[in-house]
Every structure is written in structure tokens, then in C-alpha cells.
Amino acid sequence: MSGFSTTAIILRRVEYGDYDFILTLFSRDRGKISAIAKSAQKSKRRFGGILELFSLLEIEVGSSRSGGLLILKEAVSRNLFSNIRSDIKKTAYACYWTELINLWLEEGNTHPALYEVFGYVLEQLDRAGIDEEPLSILFQMRFLSIAGLKPNFESCANCRRPTADIDASMVFLSLSAGGVICPSCSGSRSANMKLSKGTIKLLQWMDGGDITKAGRIRFSAAEQKESLLFLESFIPYHIGREPKSLKFLKNYRRGPL
């Protein structure tokens, strides 16, 4: 890979030796990439303190002579989302989304749709007075769709009976079956989650169409709670890992200390 320019969001920053940083970036044009930022630890002059978690940058990278790690040559900030870091709850949500992306993305594939969604939710989260929870529901629903892990809300995963025909306001779901389980099949499958039909509708709206419209969908407290509980169980189950930031977030919700 020779040199190129792209916009990118920092997913991870690790100190490398006494001087350099190794950055993991989600770039619009090249997907996930890793690059070394030389002398960025000591000299703020070169990159101007913008090499921070979640920073949206315009970058120029070049390949090293040995052909290994990419080298960050230049970086200009497009949005540092500095209101996120001055709020621990916002930071925890941003960390969760970032970690999800980093866990799921593999280097070498572009994901413009996911890049778009990630940029959108970070931008919204950075605003004052915005509720974090609906944004997280939006991000998680879109993430599942893009990752091909979308829950099956339409019909029973076992007998294909349409959800609309199930005569109950609360519907059972199974993590392992990946979606709805009707009452007659709930004995045979591990139906370990519950969602109201109303919440399922909202989640489906969140997933489709214009993201700015989806971002305006309102949830009641109960709908929000069951959505988060469902998504935050469904995602770790299907990507096979619980993100560390999700654990942090859950602890935080229980109240500081």
C-alpha cells in the first residue's frame, strides 16, 4: 500500500516506546488501518494535540520503507468532539461504540455505511442536552444491520409464524436463535429475552431510512430500558465478546461508586 489521504476516526491510541503512538483508525476510504505517529508523545507541535480518541481527522499516511506499518505524515482535525470527553457518560457511550467497531472490523475492508453512522452518532453525542440512550439504540441497530447480525423481528425463528400473528403484547426472543420465538415454540428454544411489540416497531424504524429522521424517534422510559437491555445482550452474544466499555457503562448506570 503506498501513501494516501482520507478522513478517519481514531479508534485506539497506544503508546509505543517513549516517543511514538500507534493509532488504530477507522478511515472512510480504506476501512480499519493502523499507523504510527512518530514523536507524537513528546512533541505536541507536529500533530497539535489532535491525536485523541474519537477525533475525526483528515490524514495523510505513507508506507514505511520496510513496507510494514503505515506512517502518519500529516493530520488536520475536522472535529475533536471535545464535549464528549468533558462528560463521563458521553465518554463511556463513545468508548462502547468505538470498541464495538474495533472488535468487529477487520483491516482491509471499507465500510462507508458504518463510517457514516459512527460519524453521525459522535457528532450528535457531542451536542449539549442530547440524550445518549436513543443514540446508542440507533447506533447498535444500524451496526447489527451492517454487520449482517440483524435480529429477526418479523417471524418466529423456529416455525416462521409472523410476529404480527402472535396474540400478546410482550414477545419472547432468543439470543441463540437470533430473534423472536412464538409462545408455542418458546419451550423448545431458550427464549431468554422479552420485548414489547411497540418496542420492536421502534427498533425497526431505527434501522431503516434516513438516519436524521431515525435519530428523532422518541422512546418511553420502559421502551428505552428494554431496548438497551436487549441490544446490549444481543450484540456481545453475536460478536462473541463483551466489550470492556460496556461493562464500564453498565456499572456507571448503577450509580457512581
Partner: peptide, 10 residues
């Protein structure tokens, strides 16, 4: 605190 490294208040 570093959520991604699993460092919490405790």
C-alpha cells in the same frame, strides 16, 4: 478511568 481498558472507578 479508561472504559476500553476496563479501568473503572473501583
Amino acid at each position: 478511568l479508561a472504559p476500553m481498558d476496563g479501568v473503572g472507578p473501583e
